[in-house]
């Protein structure tokens, strides 16, 4: 497995696409710097205002969308010039290739989350927020957001293997991501919509009694369930794919 992962990382690292990891955190930084304490009514802690406005755009849009782009990239160069047939005629199992690509993707999403954490911190430094950095809340948000994208990464990897074109898996991603904007406001659908989970799990206004701001059963059923479904679907599809 390690040799395959090292090969996967090698191919991706040469693709000069990694700067895309900066987009989400940069947008977050920009929003954080422009969000104004006064005209948002203000709360007891300036961090909350910053975090709420930054998370809204980042977790709702950029995190799921860029995740999808990354998944497309790690399959694009396999689709382009017969990469799949060369790769899969090597002494390896398809299962290991799928898992390697998946692990690489979730590692990159984690890097993106950490960069975003850096953005949050930077906003505080630049704006000179007097209160101490609320790490005990922010880490939940960062890590929770990552956990919530695990099923989405699996689905995007599946779609990216399925479709040769770059646009098709991206379209699927947009189609499922955009309704999130409406869904998060719905008490009935919000908890069950997998694409809403990154937002819910990064939403610091949620119940802080729960781990990751959502109830355990929601985490297990919605995130865990959709992960199993999407991962197994992609894994099995890849096993049988004729190349």
């Amino acid at each position: 497995m390690l040799p395959i992962m090292s090969s996967e990382w090698y191919k991706l690292s040469k693709s000069r696409i990694l700067w895309i990891l900066l987009v989400g955190p940069m947008v977050g930084l920009f929003i954080g710097l422009t969000a104004n304490f006064d005209n948002l009514g203000g709360g007891p802690n300036e961090w909350y205002v910053k975090l709420l406005s930054m998370n809204l755009t980042y977790a709702l849009l950029f995190l799921p969308l860029i995740t999808g782009v990354l998944a497309s990239v790690v399959c694009r160069y396999e689709h382009q010039e017969g990469g799949w047939k060369q790769l899969l005629a090597m002494p390896l199992t398809r299962g290991k290739v799928f898992i390697s690509k998946y692990i690489l993707l979730i590692a990159l999403v984690m890097v993106m989350q950490l960069l975003y954490l850096g953005s949050i911190y930077l906003v505080g430094v630049i704006d000179g927020i007097p209160e101490p950095f609320p790490l005990n809340i922010v880490w939940k948000s960062i890590f929770g957001g990552w956990v919530a994208t695990l099923p989405l990464v699996a689905l995007q990897l599946w779609m990216s293997i399925l479709f040769k074109s770059f646009a098709a898996p991206f379209a699927v991603n947009v189609i499922f991501t955009l309704p999130t904007i409406l869904v998060v406001n719905s008490e009935r659908f919000g908890p069950y919509y997998p694409w809403a989970q990154p937002f819910s799990m990064m939403y610091i206004g949620g119940n802080t009694e729960d781990i990751f701001f959502v109830p355990w059963d929601q985490l297990l059923i919605v995130v865990g369930g959709s992960f199993l479904l999407f991962f197994a679907g992609g894994y099995l599809y890849f096993q049988r794919k004729a190349v």
């Binding site: 191919k11 040469k14 693709s15 000069r16 160069y77 382009q80 010039e81 017969g82 990469g83 047939k85 060369q86 005629a89 090597m90 002494p91």
Partner: peptide
């Protein structure tokens, strides 16, 4: 496959 080398149809490569 450890001991097989192959080239199937058009040559395969990573363009980047």
């Amino acid at each position: 496959l450890n001991k097989v080398g192959s080239l199937v149809e058009n040559p395969s490569y990573y363009p980047h």
